[in-house]
Design a protein around this nucleic acid. Structure first.
Length: 226
DNA sequence: CCAGACGTTGTT
DNA sequence: GTCTGG
DNA sequence: CCAGACGTTGTT
DNA sequence: GTCTGG
């Protein structure tokens, strides 16, 4: 369901929307995949200001040792409070993940069709996420994150029955500080406004990061050559 | 999520 | 088919 | 007690 | 680290 997303905005646009400095800079991204390092938002020590950091997509629990692979790119919001891998992070290490769209693939017979989902005016938004930190086999401290999922909104059901959780701007602080419970995460009327369109196979290519990934796409018609 | 690999031996 | 890497 | 697992998706 | 299965 949510294994690729986009952040096709400039550093300036991100800073204006979230009201926080991105000191590491940022260039638009059209095809973000697992294992990549991306900007995420959390609360600073004071607990009332957003801050940006860079983390790797694919949560690896702090107790994992040795070679641990890609980690968990998604976590079910319905069970996140009980699962050993997420329990602790759900209570103490919540995140917002800046994005402006995401991809879904639909099996159509033998083919897989890619779709891009975003808001009509392409507004920025934030996924609900969790993070954790572990030691790499090289002994380095590595911070990783996961994106929460939920049942898809009716407007997206034709595409998929699951979707990433989008946090309303009003709820940013409540979510991050741990005040928000399940109900308030799910109450996301914004998600009802998401729309989607077919995109071409460019997005399939891991590492191909260009506007072509989100371009409208018409399936090429078969031609008999006349 | 998709793409790409999918193994063994001996040696340190 | 199933796992790993991106 | 120790050992072993700890996740999601979609598909059949 | 913490839970489940044996």
């Amino acid at each position: 369901m949510c294994g690729r997303y986009t952040l096709t905005k400039s550093q300036k646009e991100l800073q204006q929307f979230f009201g926080v400095d991105f000191p590491m800079g940022f260039s638009p991204r059209y095809n973000i995949g697992p294992m990549q390092t991306l900007p995420v938002l959390s609360l600073d020590d004071s607990g009332n200001k957003l801050m940006v950091s860079l983390m790797r997509w694919g949560l690896i629990p702090h107790w994992a040792e040795g070679v641990v692979g890609a980690g968990h790119i998604n976590a079910r919001s319905e069970t996140v409070a009980e699962k050993p891998a997420f329990k602790d992070a759900f209570r103490h290490r919540r995140l917002l993940i800046p994005a402006n769209g995401f991809f879904e693939w639909r099996q159509e017979g033998k083919e897989k069709e890619a779709y891009y989902i975003n808001f009509p005016k392409n507004e920025l938004f934030a996924f609900a996420g969790l993070w954790d930190v572990h030691q790499t086999p090289q002994g380095k401290r590595q911070e990783t994150f996961t994106i929460l999922t939920a049942q898809a909104n009716p407007n997206l059901q034709d595409l998929h029955h699951r979707m990433p959780v989008i946090v309303e701007p009003d709820a940013y602080n409540a979510w991050l500080s741990g005040d928000a419970d399940h109900a308030s995460i799910f109450r996301a009327p914004l998600s009802a406004q998401l729309t989607f369109h077919r995109v071409g196979p460019a997005v399939n290519r891991v590492g191909f990061d260009a506007p072509e990934c989100i371009a409208f796409y018409e399936k090429p018609q078969l031609s008999l050559g006349f």
